[in-house]
Design a protein around this nucleic acid. Structure first.
Lengths: 337, 337
DNA sequence: CTGTTAGCGCGTTCAT
DNA sequence: ATGAACGCGCTAACAG
């Protein structure tokens, strides 16, 4: 166990020939006119020589704060949440904060209490796409909380950072309608969260104002296989076949494309397919997906900023981030009968 | 700031009418025959009433350990590393350990020192796919270290967890050769790490033993766009066109498929394409990719286990995890001239 | 069987 | 301008 013992601030003090308090002041950056320039320099040199690093456990204990936030996500393997983390971690880093992840099991139901042991070690929580009831434990604990993708909260509730999903869906619908599509099937994710409820509702509302529009809906799990099956149902349902499949996510769109090909239909010539998320998958597919770009990193970044503001007692107005339609090759005018 | 002050073990002790040490023993689970059943029960009840949670900072300071591991990954947005994290976190959780992520910038070169502040707060490091020199800072610090996907280390070096990538490549080559392919281009990731060096070398070696085999190589960045460009170069190079593209990853394979289609070639009828990783992308594509499944979660899990063993002073033999070829629809016999 | 004591490393106050 | 002393909450030793 060589070199297992690290130097403490006392070691630095001894090496620099000063007291512990002086070391703390100098390294803490609050010595303006309290410690002479010469001594301050000696301290810094000694700290450098010894490769001194403050003991975070001791600091946290003394200060009562940990400079660590907990990010609760449904599934890290999904690229969207990985990006959210990346954004949150970047902002945290700029403020000497850390971010630890808590992937809530299965993303549904009141997750196993993430705070049994963690509560003591974190200053606040950023929760992404969680059902409100799963967060009751946090609110009870009086831990500062920011909610992501959960919809605008109540007046006195936690700060929120949301995506303009309704607007995103509107852009997709107008894009499809503008191309001439009237028979559209919504391939909906079978997940009961705010963001997906809004998508379903907005598709309905927006299409209700279009003359001759026919909307159908197929629900499925958020995975390629189930999406493919749902798309097959949609494309083989009795009556006239839909000319466009509006999917709740790029993953579903991938399944839809496979279904179309399997039925001998070409995308986009016979059926148009739109996605949502703009994952790297969207451009890996052929044809590339028309989809809606979500600023995932910004969501994480704004979430972290909101938490920092909350901890500072600063105002935290609700945030809504704009999203943009990215037209690509998977949509085109419908076939002429 | 309601309820911001949490109860301490002293509060629990007072409420239960015992001493602080008794609380510590009972809640720490080491009171067999040292505290009476009745008192223990009173302590637990009091702790429950007060919703007591031990202060982790204080515990860490006292014990000198944090029960936290640092996982260094090149890029979290890549599904593979997200899975590695998931596996590591699962094993960590089973041992009341936490895992914090450090995404090393750009995944190349000696990363910015992740330990400036973190070193003090972690018990050990699990580093994935890092260049050896980027890890010198860790080894110097005497911090327990486990290396992932870095190849078998020196005798006295850190424990390693590797994938049997050479065997995986061999399975792919034999699969292609078995189908009848002889002109094969290796679409290689332009990344200088052990795992990719091994892949290139194994392709060469394995194909060297096949009569009439012709190997070409195209290098590119690990992304769809560059892969597509590289595949176009491969498929339009002077001389007879290769009948199979052996790609270093599913992402590259996706680019290769797009390139083939763009040139009017069908996959797999005109050209076979194989991937590596078995990401969810592999089955999202059409045709589904023949690829090699990597047990990413197991890598993370074994890495964490190795670190725990290392911390316990237990032996940590090098681990190599098997990988398996998953034949799907993107490979078939070569076209008959 | 239980309580008392000491100290982990740090940041802060008070006294020099 | 600097040093001595204290306590954050916890656990491991030792007394009783």
């Amino acid at each position: 166990m060589a070199g297992s013992d690290r130097p403490t601030s006392r070691d630095v003090a001894r090496a620099a020939g000063v007291s512990q308090a002086t070391v703390s002041l100098v390294l803490g950056g609050k010595w303006r006119g309290r410690v002479s320039e010469r001594t301050a320099d000696a301290v810094r040199r000694a700290a450098g020589e010894l490769e001194y690093r403050p003991n975070l456990a001791a600091r946290s204990l003394r200060l009562g704060r940990t400079r660590t936030a907990l990010l609760v996500v449904p599934a890290l393997t999904h690229e969207y949440f990985a990006r959210v983390y990346t954004g949150a971690a970047r902002v945290a880093d700029e403020h000497d904060f850390g971010v630890v992840l808590y992937p809530s099991p299965e993303g549904t139901g009141p997750a196993r209490d993430p705070f049994g042991s963690a509560r003591a070690a974190i200053d606040g929580v950023i929760a992404s796409s969680m059902a409100a009831d799963a967060l009751s434990g946090i609110a009870d604990g009086g831990l500062p909380l920011v909610m992501l993708d959960s919809g605008p909260g109540a007046a006195g509730g936690p700060p929120t950072v949301d995506l303009a999903v309704a607007d995103g869906i509107r852009q997709v619908v107008r894009h499809l309608v503008g191309l001439g599509h009237r028979r559209i099937t919504h391939l909906a994710a079978d997940v009961d969260t705010w963001t997906f409820r809004v998508r379903a509702q907005t598709v309905r509302e927006e299409l209700a104002g279009v003359a001759g529009a026919e909307l159908a809906t197929e629900r499925c799990e958020l995975d390629v296989g189930p999406a493919r099956a749902a798309a097959v149902r949609a494309l083989t349902a009795p009556g006239r076949r839909p000319t466009a499949l509006l999917c709740d996510g790029d993953v579903l769109a991938a399944g839809a494309c496979k279904a179309a090909r399997g039925l001998g239909l070409r995308v986009p010539d016979d059926v148009s397919v739109s996605g949502f998320d703009d994952l790297s998958l969207a451009t890996a597919l052929d044809p590339e997906l028309t989809t809606v770009r979500l600023p995932a990193e910004d969501v994480g970044a704004r979430g972290m900023s909101a938490l920092l503001a909350l901890l500072d007692g600063a105002p935290t107005p609700p945030t809504e981030l704009p999203v943009h339609l990215i037209p690509r090759a998977s949509t085109s005018p419908p076939p002429t009968d």
